[in-house]
Write a protein that binds this DNA or RNA. Structure first.
Length: 805
DNA sequence: CAGTGAGCGAGCTTCCGCTTGACTT
């Protein structure tokens, strides 16, 4: 066995392809890249022509040695990674790491997982394209240089453990810039007039035509004057225009469009969408979910066609092949589609079912006929040739793809109302009912949500399908942006009505405006970092930086430029910016704002980004007495906080009262406001305020928490205080010091004896500590303890910022 | 989950793109 070894990137793909190729072929997966720059090192020898130092990551060592073993036994190794820049590099790294020989190595590519495509690929092998590999090396090296030279500047100048990068920093800039556009937005208002008219159709049908005036007025006075002027006028239908219109279905899903629609229609986050899609892919229900291609295999198009015909008839079918419009698309895969279009629905979780249904409908709809509409516009005049009322109606003549799928939009206020219009004729006199002029306001620019930010990034050619979701999560993890919902505010608007009998009435009404759901807002850290980077790294922070370097990478891929030369040219200018950003010395910390002086002590009061986020400081290091600090509260910003508000923060901790002989204090900490009773901490809820919370309320919260604590403990043992049986998030478990142990099936937690517990603990020696580090370095002696040798780079937890005082 | 922070100093943090696994008590 094993005449031929085929290596692809994804294990699910390997399984499918193995079936197509028969027993002479063994198909294995590389699980993506198998070598990379070292994760903790710069790993680029700048002085030595940017020589990269690659290594096989620890978690890939076993896999690579297995592949190496198989490769030496095989007669021919077929490198079948994706046909794009990264895929070519994967093949090259495999070639090197597995010590392959050119005479028994072939590079093959295919864009779709069908038997024909695979067999065709096998018959048309080629060599590794070194130019394309070099373009990837340039991309990799550039990203490492930017990330690892700029991030440390932020650690020094803003806050530890921050990060900067070609993709994430621009993503943050989009959010920050948009927020400023919103702040600076100068809204206008105008009056829009709508009138219902009673009409009788030529067929005798009565209807109400809702018509809008062609002119908008800027002031109330103009509006009233207009309403006065149409009192008692005769209204006449001057014109009827009937226009046919078509609607064309959207192309099938790419990663980005799937994320957008799943967000709009199913309310999924981008990460959620990708997780569910991954499940569908692994169980063979959909094609690959990280793609920028809208291409469908011929097989898929044919299946869709017969499916549509049997479902709705020949007229509804229209086969189409879409072409991509997105910048920098590499199209190594198909669009996201059901593997078997004949499967209208699937088994699985409700999320899987819903996402599958969305993919199925979108795919099938893309192969359906255009919808045919008829738009009718009726113009109603009243003797003034420059102004008229217009009513529009839309009738679907043939639904086509709309039978299956209606794409949603991000427009929150969709007040496009259309009326069903009966047959009418020019010269008819509709009956005036009333005219209502309403004050309207121009719309502020929209804030991004996760999915619309992805769409923008894709439009700018920034990031790839595999990185959209991780990028969105990184900028939130770094606390550059915050996903939030806001209730909005009431806004007054005027409404003027001209009634049938000629009276004009005026009403002031209230509407809710500025309501936001799961939108991305910049934090203080985000805007400070963004401004700092924009000041010092104009090139990298410009929206077209990626597009420009992509052009350079294309030149490398065409073999017209050495990658080191391209990187060298970039590095010269870039490194100068790094040096000057580092050397810049200013009186104030980056982003610091001086609010004034303390009314009593006369010490300076300022706000800035501290080690734990935005904070107020009273006094400076130069003052005789030590400075005092306080964190800003959620919702406060260093840009807008006043001196008075800042000083209020120092009223905490506050003694709320005495309970059972002990003081209850209210304060705000890392996880928000809380009340403290002896060693017990209880978080305050949204409704509570640490400055005003009453003793009664504090006691209520404390008693509730004490009750919950009691419920948590199922059993303790007199013989060993360190062992407890507890009730946790995932059910009962045994806790000993910092480690937790699972209770074997069949045991009743409450009946466990100390001996049984010890047995269980002994039988599970591998249990990991529940926290990766001691909770807190309370004493000086503890902090020097060396970091645990374990915990590789993988640990993605919260940055455990630690510093001695 | 845990409820902080002014120093003379250790060592940590970080990028983007490929891909899944994990043992979530």
């Amino acid at each position: 066995m094993g005449e031929n070894l085929v290596i692809v990137e994804s294990p699910a793909k390997a399984k499918t392809i193995e079936k197509f190729l028969g027993k002479d072929f063994v198909v294995k997966s590389s699980y993506g890249h198998i070598r990379d720059l070292k994760p903790k090192d710069f790993s680029i020898d700048v002085a030595n022509n940017f020589e990269p130092q690659y290594e096989i990551p620890a978690d890939k060592k076993k896999l690579v040695s297995e592949l190496k073993d198989l490769a030496t036994k095989a007669k021919m190794v077929w490198l079948a990674s994706d046909e794009d820049r990264e895929g070519e590099a994967i093949s090259w790294h495999l070639f090197q790491a597995l010590n392959l020989k050119p005479e028994n190595t072939k590079r093959i590519v295919f864009h779709e997982i069908t038997k024909e495509a695979i067999l065709h690929a096998i018959q048309n092998p080629r060599a590794i394209d070194q130019n394309l590999v070099d373009a990837q090396q340039a991309r990799r090296v550039l990203d490492r240089i930017v990330g690892f030279e700029v991030s440390p500047i932020l650690w020094r100048k803003v806050k530890p453990a921050l990060s900067a990068g070609r993709v994430q920093s621009v993503a943050v800039k989009l959010i920050v810039d948009r927020e400023r556009e919103i702040e600076q937005f100068n809204g206008e208002s105008w009056y829009r007039t709508i009138s219902p008219f009673n009409v009788v159709g030529t067929d005798g049908r009565e209807a109400v035509l809702k018509a809008e005036l062609s002119k908008k007025f800027n002031t109330k006075e103009e509006t009233i004057a207009f309403l006065e002027s149409i009192k008692g006028k005769t209204f006449t239908i001057n014109d009827i225009v009937v226009k046919p219109a078509r609607k064309t279905p959207q192309p099938p899903f790419t990663t980005s469009t799937l994320q957008q629609e799943a967000s709009r229609k199913l309310g999924f986050t981008v990460a959620q969408t990708m997780m569910v899609a991954q499940k569908l892919y692994e169980s063979g229900k959909i094609t690959y979910m990280r793609t920028d291609s809208v291409n469908l295999s011929q097989m898929a198009i044919n299946t869709a066609k017969s499916e549509i015909i049997s479902m709705a008839g020949e007229r509804y079918s229209k086969s189409r092949q879409f072409t991509t419009s997105s910048k920098g698309a590499q199209e190594a895969h198909e669009a996201i589609r059901p593997t078997y279009i004949s499967a209208h629905e699937i088994d699985g979780t409700s999320q899987e079912k819903r996402l599958y249904e969305l993919i199925w409908k979108r795919t099938v709809a893309s192969q359906m006929a255009d919808a045919e509409l008829e738009r009718t516009t009726i113009s109603i005049g009243f003797g003034n040739p420059d102004i008229w009322f217009a009513a529009t109606g839309e009738v679907i003549k043939f639904d086509g793809f709309l039978k299956l799928y209606i794409e949603s939009t991000d427009d929150e206020q969709n007040d496009d109302e259309t009326t069903l219009i009966p047959p009418l004729k020019v010269g008819q006199n509709p009956e005036f009912v009333q005219a209502i002029a309403t004050q309207r306001f121009s719309q502020k620019p929209y804030r991004y949500n996760e999915a619309s930010l992805v769409r923008k990034l894709e439009e700018l050619g920034i990031g790839r399908p595999s990185t959209y979701a991780p990028t969105i999560s990184t900028i939130q993890q770094r606390e550059y942006v915050l996903k939030e919902s806001r209730p909005g505010e009431p806004r007054e608007f005027a409404e003027l009505t001209l009634t049938k009998n000629g009276a004009i009435t005026e009403k002031n009404k209230i509407e809710n405006t500025g309501q936001e759901k799961n939108k991305l807002f910049p934090t203080d850290i985000g805007s400070v970092v963004c401004d700092f980077l924009s000041d010092h790294f104009k090139n990298i922070m410009s929206y077209d930086f990626t597009a420009k370097v992509e052009e350079e990478f294309d030149i490398i891929a065409e073999g017209k430029m050495e990658w080191q030369k391209t990187i060298g040219e970039f590095y010269t200018g870039f490194h100068n910016e790094v040096v000057s950003a580092n050397n810049e010395r200013t009186e104030q910390k980056v982003g610091e704002r001086i609010l004034g002086v303390h009314p009593e002590t006369k010490h300076q009061v300022s706000v800035k980004i501290g080690r734990f986020g935005p904070m107020v400081q009273i006094g400076t290091a130069d003052d005789e007495d030590k400075p005092r600090f306080a964190s800003l509260l959620k919702g406060q910003s260093i840009n807008t906080i006043t001196l008075e508000e800042a000083l209020t923060l120092f009223k905490l901790p506050r003694v709320v009262g005495v309970y059972n002989g002990t003081e209850i204090k209210a304060n705000t900490g890392r996880f928000g406001p809380y009340v403290q009773f002896a060693k017990l901490f209880v978080s305050l809820t949204k409704e509570d305020d640490p400055f005003t919370v009453s003793l009664e309320r504090a006691i209520e919260l404390i008693e509730k928490k004490q009750e919950a604590e009691k419920q948590k403990v199922i059993k303790t043992f007199a013989g060993d205080e360190t062992i407890q049986v507890l009730n946790g998030r995932y059910g009962p478990y045994i806790a000993k010091e910092r480690s937790n142990y699972k209770i074997p099936k069949g045991k009743v937690p409450a009946d466990l004896t100390l001996e049984e517990c010890l047995e269980i603990i002994a039988s599970q020696p591998d249990a990991k500590p529940s926290r990766k580090a001691p909770a807190k370095a309370t004493s000086k002696t503890k902090a020097t303890a060396k970091a645990k040798a374990k915990t590789p780079a993988k640990a993605k937890g919260k940055p455990a910022t630690k510093k001695e005082s």
